[in-house]
């Protein structure tokens, strides 16, 4: 057994998994509250990466230092993605609140295609190089070949985000209202919770996490195009399903599990079928355990 290789794969899987977890949180939160697979969530992530690229490009031309660029790009990406998430919900999902289950899903697919094509028209359909925004940390030098500074920032940053989110949901009034709405929207509304506002906030939080994820992974990988959202979105959705959709710790667990599984599968089996593993896991899980690792099996009401 080659331990170095094993550690490399584990750390690589951890980085990947953290990003999946960040995006999966957006899926799971939205699903928990309005039972909709927000198909366009991956596109929000893509828009986050693009916004980050534009901000970094503009600031780079004016000669800002790297760390300042990173912080400003992250803030702007979060603001814009929240705005996109909010607007998307108002246009494509809110009018369909009382329609069947198929209509919002088709609307979401339409929204996803719309955002992809919007980026193609407004920017380009080619791959764009993304500048490395994350500076090299000296204390990581000994293991930099398997765990660089961007991996470090991704893992630590996403862990912080998730911890903050958990605290927010658990201990704030707004978090309590969110949990109540997820449990039973009608009842929550009767108790004076503005459900529309809660739904908007859910979209905003999910989108800002996706924005951070998009920015960090784009800086890690080094190039972006309009299609990155689709694959990342489906994989993050897989993560959400693995963990049990609707459950926040489940999404984190599912993300890490999927990241590690993918990393080991590509490392030990074959890298040609990298994406097949995720899809196969998704299909297998949905068939045999649709409620996921942490979820509860839904009771069918007649």
């Amino acid at each position: 057994m080659d331990w170095d290789y094993f550690f490399e794969l584990t750390l690589g899987g951890l980085t990947r998994g953290s990003i999946y977890a960040m995006i999966a949180l957006g899926y799971t939160m939205v699903y928990g509250i309005i039972e909709l697979i927000n198909f366009a969530h991956g596109e929000i992530y893509m828009i986050g990466a693009f916004t980050g690229l534009l901000v970094a490009g503009v600031l780079g031309v004016y000669g800002f230092p790297a760390l300042a660029i990173l912080v400003i790009a992250a803030v702007v990406a979060v603001i814009y993605c929240s705005a996109y998430g909010y607007t998307m919900e108002k246009i494509a999902y809110k009018p369909l609140r009382n329609a069947g289950r198929l209509s919002p899903l088709i609307s979401a697919i339409g929204m996803s295609l719309f955002l992809q094509n919007y980026v193609i028209l407004a920017q380009t359909s080619d791959f764009l190089p993304f500048p490395a925004l994350i500076p090299e940390f000296e204390f990581l030098d000994p293991i930099a070949h398997i765990f660089g500074s961007s991996d470090f920032v991704i893992v630590v940053g996403s862990a912080l985000c998730m911890a903050a989110l958990t605290l927010f949901i658990k201990y704030t009034k707004m978090g309590k209202a969110m949990r109540a709405t997820a449990q039973n929207r009608k009842m929550a509304m009767l108790l004076g919770i503005d459900a529309d506002r809660i739904i908007s906030i859910t979209f905003i939080i999910g989108s800002s996490l996706a924005a951070l994820g998009g920015l960090l992974i784009a800086s890690h990988v080094g190039q972006i195009n309009f299609m990155i959202g689709f694959l990342a979105g489906v994989k993050a959705f897989t993560a959400a399903v693995l963990g049990g959709i609707g459950s926040i710790p489940g999404a984190v667990l599912g993300g890490l599990f999927l990241g590690l599984a993918e990393s080991f599968a590509t490392g030990y089996i074959s890298s040609d079928y990298e994406d097949v593993f995720a899809f196969t896991l998704l299909v297998v899980f949905l068939i045999f355990r649709p409620s996921g690792i942490m979820g509860k099996a839904p009771v069918e009401k007649v």
């Binding site: 039972e35 909709l36 697979i37 289950r101 198929l102 899903l105 489906v234 959705f237 897989t238 399903v241 040609d272 079928y273 994406d275 097949v276 899809f279 196969t280 998704l282 299909v283 949905l286 068939i287 649709p290």
Partner: peptide
């Protein structure tokens, strides 16, 4: 396998299946 699934889950599984077919053809 997808007989038991409904609505949105079914949609995602068929999407996954479609992508698996394409990726297998490609690889």
């Amino acid at each position: 396998p997808v007989l038991r699934l409904r609505g949105d889950y079914l949609a995602i599984v068929t999407l996954g299946f479609g992508e698996i077919v394409r990726l297998v053809l490609e690889n």
